[in-house]
Measured scan of single mutants.
Amino acid sequence: HMTFVALYDYVASGETDLSFKKGERLQIVNNTEGDWALAHSLTTGRTGYIPSNYVAPSD
C-alpha cells in the first residue's frame, strides 16, 4: 500500500469515517469510492473513510 500524509485535520462526520490530524500518516486500502478513500491510519491504527483530497502521497 502507498503511504499518504494528511494535509489538514479532518473530523469524522459518521461512524464509517476516519478522523485524523494534519501530518498523520495513512495507507489507502481502497480508492474506488471517487472523492472518498478507505484508509488505515499508521498513527492510530484505525481504519475508515477519508476525503481523498485531504491527503497527498508521502515519500
Rank of each mutant, 00 (worst) to 15 (best):
H1N: 13
M2C: 15
M2G: 10
T3F: 13
T3M: 11
F4D: 01
F4V: 15
F4Y: 14
F4M: 11
V5C: 09
V5P: 02
A6R: 00
A6V: 12
A6M: 07
L7K: 06
L7T: 06
Y8D: 07
Y8K: 07
Y8V: 08
D9E: 06
D9P: 03
D9C: 05
Y10I: 02
Y10S: 01
Y10F: 07
Y10C: 03
V11T: 12
V11L: 08
V11N: 10
A12G: 12
A12M: 04
S13G: 09
S13Y: 10
G14K: 14
G14A: 11
E15T: 11
E15D: 13
T16C: 15
T16Y: 15
T16S: 13
D17V: 07
D17H: 13
D17E: 15
D17N: 09
D17T: 07
L18K: 03
S19G: 09
S19C: 05
S19F: 05
S19A: 06
F20T: 02
F20E: 00
F20A: 03
F20Y: 03
K21L: 09
K21W: 04
K21A: 08
K22L: 04
K22S: 06
G23M: 02
G23L: 03
G23I: 00
E24Y: 03
R25A: 08
R25P: 06
R25T: 12
L26N: 00
L26C: 02
L26P: 00
Q27A: 09
Q27R: 14
Q27E: 10
Q27K: 12
Q27W: 14
I28K: 03
I28G: 01
I28H: 01
I28L: 10
I28T: 02
V29G: 05
N30E: 12
N30L: 13
N31S: 12
T32I: 14
T32R: 10
E33W: 12
E33C: 15
E33P: 10
E33F: 14
E33A: 11
E33I: 12
E33D: 13
G34C: 09
G34S: 08
G34W: 06
G34Q: 07
D35W: 08
D35H: 11
W36I: 05
W36L: 06
W36A: 03
W36D: 02
W36V: 06
A37P: 08
L38C: 14
L38W: 13
L38H: 04
L38G: 00
A39G: 04
A39H: 01
A39D: 00
H40W: 06
H40G: 02
H40N: 06
H40Y: 13
S41R: 01
L42T: 06
L42Y: 06
L42C: 12
L42G: 02
L42P: 07
T43C: 12
T44D: 04
T44C: 03
T44E: 03
G45W: 02
T47Y: 09
T47H: 07
T47K: 07
T47A: 06
G48A: 04
G48C: 04
Y49R: 09
I50M: 03
I50K: 00
P51S: 02
P51E: 02
S52R: 15
S52D: 04
S52N: 10
S52T: 15
Y54Q: 06
Y54E: 02
Y54W: 08
V55H: 04
V55G: 05
V55N: 05
V55M: 07
A56W: 10
A56R: 10
A56C: 12
A56N: 08
A56K: 10
P57A: 11
S58A: 14
S58L: 15
S58P: 10
D59P: 14
D59I: 12
D59N: 11
